[in-house]
């Protein structure tokens, strides 16, 4: 009897140990360091900080608020545009037409390209020496030297386009998969009743996709909020902090300035913001509720 009671615990023990080691410990470690002054280049100043780091980020660090504001803007614009374009593409490649298989492959292909390679491609495309603007200038269509990543007025749009190229297929794949399970009879019945294409979309397709949209947008919001690879390689957060997201700011404080205490406080703040956002989003969107 005792053995029968122990067995389930033993069976889940490896998973539990892995979660403790790879999830709980790192998170607890970050929270611990957020309460410390910990800078490897200044060991003489290290020690317990209490809430000093949080006080600094809330009241004395305009860059925290600036990078948080930029992160929110980045997530809102990216996720909205990716969802709209992804939904449009999913609807198109869900139809029956000649060359559908090839179209689907082309639509999904950017998702198969690694993040670093994607940014490498876009860095070259935007580079005034090697990129598109150079060739357009050679043809006399524009002036030499246009550098969208160097101009604060264009850098945001340029980065958004690069990330869209990578992010749209994610929504297209997920939404197409869900579209495949939509009941054909509903569409047939609606057609018989004279419902237009638009009406069918809003009354059948969209309600059917609701949970997939909520889950994919939530995932994408978290991923875009934590996006480091594309912006770090493309702009480095610049020029002049114009594209610095909160994770990029964490990277510059912790990895470059070696201030791991303050970097941990920023990370803890980001974690709390994302947790609060995720709970609120799932509650407000009534995820999983029957339509």
């Amino acid at each position: 009897m005792a053995r029968a009671t122990r067995t389930p615990y033993l069976l889940i023990a490896p998973a539990l140990i892995a979660m403790l080691g790879f999830l709980v410990y790192p998170m607890a470690s970050v929270v611990y360091y957020s309460l410390q002054h910990y800078n490897v280049t200044k060991p003489w100043d290290n020690g317990f900080a209490g809430l000093d780091n949080f006080r600094t980020l809330l009241f004395e660090d305009p860059l925290f608020w600036q990078s948080l504001g930029f992160s929110v803007k980045w997530v809102a614009v990216e996720v909205t545009l990716q969802l709209l374009f992804g939904l449009a593409l999913a609807l198109i490649v869900n139809e029956t037409f000649v060359g559908r298989a090839l179209s689907r492959a082309l639509v999904f292909s950017p998702w198969a390209v690694s993040g670093v390679l994607t940014t490498g491609i876009w860095v070259l495309l935007y580079n005034p020496t090697t990129g598109v603007s150079r060739y357009l200038a050679d043809l006399g269509l524009m002036e030499y030297g246009a550098a969208p990543l160097a101009d604060p007025d264009t850098v945001f749009s340029a980065a958004v386009v690069a990330e869209l190229w990578r992010g749209v297929p994610f929504f297209a794949i997920l939404l197409l998969a869900d579209l495949q399970s939509a009941a054909k009879e509903l569409y047939e019945a609606a057609s018989v009743d004279g419902a237009s294409r638009v009406r069918r979309f809003f009354h059948i397709t969209l309600p059917h996709l609701k949970d997939a949209i909520i889950l994919s947008t939530l995932l994408r919001c978290v991923w875009e909020f934590n996006n480091v690879d594309l912006l770090y390689t493309l702009t480095g957060g610049g020029p002049a902090h114009a594209t610095t997201t909160l994770p990029l700011y964490v990277a510059s404080k912790a990895a470059q300035a070696h201030d791991f205490g303050y970097g941990s406080a920023l990370t803890t703040a980001a974690f709390l913001i994302l947790t609060f956002f995720s709970i609120a989003y799932l509650r407000l969107s009534k995820f999983g509720a029957k339509a």
Binding site: T130, G145, A147, D151, T235, G236, G238
Partner: peptide, 14 residues
């Protein structure tokens, strides 16, 4: 060039 504002070593040499 306008791109100089974000020039690191690699871009500058390029």
């Amino acid at each position: 060039p306008e791109a100089d504002v974000t020039n690191d070593y690699v871009k500058m040499v390029a």
